[in-house]
Design a protein around this nucleic acid. Structure first.
Lengths: 229, 229
DNA sequence: CCAAAAGTGTTTCACGTACACCCATGC
DNA sequence: GCATGGGTGTACGTGAAACACTTTTGG
């Protein structure tokens, strides 16, 4: 089966930069490619868009197929279309970034990925194609976006402590924050619902658990509220 | 001549949302389509990307071909890829937004445009395809971006008065600003070079002319400065 | 001389920032 | 009992916001 057009067309792909957070680092989900070009090289999960498939859907599908990750926060990042970014053919790729809670997802490599694994953004292997450039832009976007939209929560479990939340911002923004000022500010926004529970299994005083109150956030936005770290 | 591929491929286009500013309104540059679909309908300038052409280059080329507008500030906005956004065929379009000084550009409709004209964003005709959606997103992006990047200047002549600059922000952000506070803040940033000249031909006291000091802005950024309105 | 916009300072208030100690828990 | 992080309040300074009058120019 083949398809013929009057003018040549680029191939059309998606790539996903999936961020996760552990106790130490900001991490990104990579796959080891099973095919040429760059077979054996680490790369962003992604692949070609089907002809009857919206781009966002393609990003979610490829992510699920190659890594097992599903139902996550996903937004378009940028479209990369340098003529020579793929050695085989002209390939235009719409890059997405996703935020997930690391522990929620069992990784299942499949499709044309040999394996899928988390890498610290500070210790990355060599990446295929222009994926390093895509990743850099995604990290930059993430830094910009967490400061004025409450999406950092996507990286945490549904119930989390203020310590975890502060650690999240410190990791992404790459600077220390003052504990008292952070708590004052974030609690003052009325976006966190205190659950009346505490964490357990820690070798120190257990911290209170909170969750992001999306309903109240939406109401506040309607009244003109702007989240800002 | 024709081109054959193993899998079907979307057609691949660009569209440009070109903003300009006059004494009254924020305006956008539209073309009247000469061909089906939507012949006779107003639309964003744009067209198909050549196979050996970077996407940005395609946006600039189409803009020049269809409207005569060249050498402008142009950035990628978003990629639109709904399956049914074009009735003929699957077409993915990378949208760009551009900022120009209205008076610098003589409009020359050509290529597949019958005419090109400026429309106030508050009084728009019906637009082809999903161009209204693209335009809305562009306007939203513009509002977001002028507040923390000094790109508003792209909409003004090289020499401008503080009045014009304030009017620009009031128009884009759609709210009144306090004259004294605005002047204090913008002059305090040391981004404007006073030219020692005044405007002429006005029926009131002539205002001083300034220009944006890009060199100094770049230096300040290197020292950690962040523009913020 | 009238209309129209240019240009200019001060006060007030909110918010960001800096900073240190006691408390609860697990081991 | 000790190590580890949890949790809390205040003082200071900067910057945003509110606000009105005089000056200049063209017609």
């Amino acid at each position: 089966m083949s398809y013929t057009y009057q003018y040549p067309r680029p191939a059309f792909a998606v790539d996903c930069v999936v961020f996760g957070l552990d106790e130490e680092h900001l991490k990104v989900l990579l796959i080891e490619r099973d095919r040429e070009p760059f077979a054996g090289c680490w790369a962003l999960p992604g692949g070609f868009v089907e002809i009857d498939e919206a781009i966002d859907d393609a990003a979610r599908r490829e992510l699920a197929e190659e890594t097992g990750v599903e139902n996550v926060f996903l937004e378009q990042l940028y479209t990369f279309g340098a003529v020579d970014r793929d050695p085989r053919d002209r390939v235009v790729s719409v890059a997405y970034y996703a935020l997930v809670n690391l522990l929620d997802h069992q990784l299942h490599a499949a499709s044309d990925a040999r394996q899928a694994a988390w890498f610290s953004v500070k210790r990355l292997p060599r990446l295929a194609f222009d994926h390093r450039e895509i990743l850099n832009l995604a990290q930059q976007r993430l830094r910009g976006v967490v400061r004025y939209r409450p999406i950092g929560f996507e990286l945490l479990p549904r119930k989390f402590t203020l310590r975890q939340l502060q650690h999240l911002y410190e990791t992404i923004l790459d600077r220390k924050l003052d504990k008292r000022n952070f708590r004052k500010k974030i609690l003052g926004m009325q976006l966190l619902e205190e659950l009346g529970e505490c964490e357990s299994g820690v070798a120190h005083r257990a911290a209170r658990l909170y969750r992001f109150d999306r309903r109240n956030y939406n109401q506040l936005v309607n009244k003109g509220f702007n989240f800002e770290l």
